[in-house]
Design a binder for these strands. Structure first.
Lengths: 241, 241
DNA sequence: TAGCACCTATAGCATTGCTATATGAACTGA
DNA sequence: TCAGTTCATATAGCAATGCTATAGGTGCTA
């Protein structure tokens, strides 16, 4: 139960802290647990890191190095926006793989350390977005785009972490990701005119669906299913209500 | 320095905890500080709330009531998507006004309590999106849209909280907000442009009908018919583009 | 060998969340 | 009116926490 490996105590403390943090399930981790697992006594910890927070900052810094490495460690595809997608997915995956560490990095807020990390993550993404801008693919400043995308990226990751692993639906991530990337990209994005506020009755909706179905040859339903479906639809769309 | 006001101790504890939490600047708040400010001794706290966490949960619950009240307390404009914008702005403002409370609610994660709150916030937004869907203004399921928008909303708010108040640029919020809303909204008539990134009109119509049906208790179909009908409707409205 | 900087251990302090127990107050039924 | 019961608060103290004052090795240089 001790992390001896002839490693220097400083390293053992770092690893012990990281391991306990990762397995704590959100609960607090005591210095006594850490020092015991590291096979070291208390003053050693305070000699090397000054503080419990100092130790945790070191753990976070190490985690951030790993994060940055993950964000850089793929061959650029030549399509900057495609690379942004991969950065997004990497970010989410990092959060899901190391939720506790991620929470300390992006979920917690201590007015000094967090902005530094966030700023670095922003810079990382901005760097990539600069290429997109150079290729004329952005319709906003790269910095603003990076901030916006990263904010959404963090929000999605936090939400995915918060829900039980069995219910996690990564479509939330891809959908939000593509929405953000589309929003900053220079495609011919027409205005968002709300348009006519169509009536909201069941009848109107049913009629619309009916018409759309007739015209589209959807193959989601078998022919017998479709027949019955249309009959019901007709019943609904001719209802007196 | 005491919160006496002839209020019952339970209330004084709640207010003391809320006040200390709001002014702690992220630092830990001890039960002794709370009980002293409330003019009460320790066992009183544990009698009423069982736990330090129990007390904080109560504070969060009260904060959430306030949040929900803020989200409901404006006249519906008749344009659901415009109301969604206001919900977003309310959310951000709540976070900036009470950052510490907000962090406990949305930034922290304790696998039990947080998902409940997030789920409630989701439901709140989904409720509004149902109206948009019923009006044929959505191209995704209201639930998915709500999750996606809320995730981005939280991410933006956290990022704004993290940076010094002087540098806060709310344009990050409006830009991300409009990007998300645009992404989930159906292409406004103006030419129908079927091919583009928008989903087919069948899907839009099916989603609208689904939302309208849920809200209207139509009795044109028997319950068993309705069940099967909804199942098919779901199949259609989640079909790949 | 002596001196020196570095690293670690022994032991203990103040504060933390929490509780076993007891005391008071308010209500209930006779 | 009064004993019994329940609710609410206080006294005092426990175990665990973060942290530290002090002292003891350990290896290097001279």
């Amino acid at each position: 139960m001790s992390l001896d490996g002839q490693l220097p105590p400083k390293m053992r403390l770092l690893r012990a802290a990281a391991e306990l943090l990762a397995n704590s399930g959100g609960a607090a981790v005591s210095t006594r647990q850490i020092t015991q697992l590291a096979g070291v006594t208390a003053p050693t910890l305070y000699h090397h890191f000054g503080d419990k927070e100092g130790l945790f900052d070191a753990v976070v810094a190490a985690g951030f190095e790993e994060y940055v490495a993950g964000e850089r460690d793929f061959a650029p595809s030549g399509q900057p926006l495609e690379d942004i997608r991969r950065m997004w997915d990497n970010h989410v995956q990092f959060g899901l793989n190391q939720p506790e560490l991620y929470l300390v990095m992006f979920g917690n807020i201590r007015p000094e350390s967090r902005p530094a990390i966030v700023a670095d993550a922003e810079a990382l993404m901005e760097e990539m977005l600069n290429k997109a801008a150079a290729a004329g693919q952005l319709n906003v400043q790269p910095r603003e785009a990076a901030r916006s995308i990263l904010a959404a990226n963090v929000g999605v990751t936090l939400m995915l972490i918060a829900e039980p692993a069995s219910e996690r639906n990564l479509e939330l991530s891809t959908m939000t990701r593509d929405a953000m990337i589309f929003a900053v990209s220079a495609e011919p994005a027409s205005g968002t005119a709300p348009g006519d506020t169509g009536k909201s009755s069941v009848v109107v909706a049913a009629i619309a669906l009916n018409a759309a179905l007739q015209a589209s040859h959807s193959d989601q339903l078998s022919s017998s299913e479709l027949k019955l479906f249309l009959e019901w639809l007709h019943r609904i769309s001719t209802s007196p209500a």
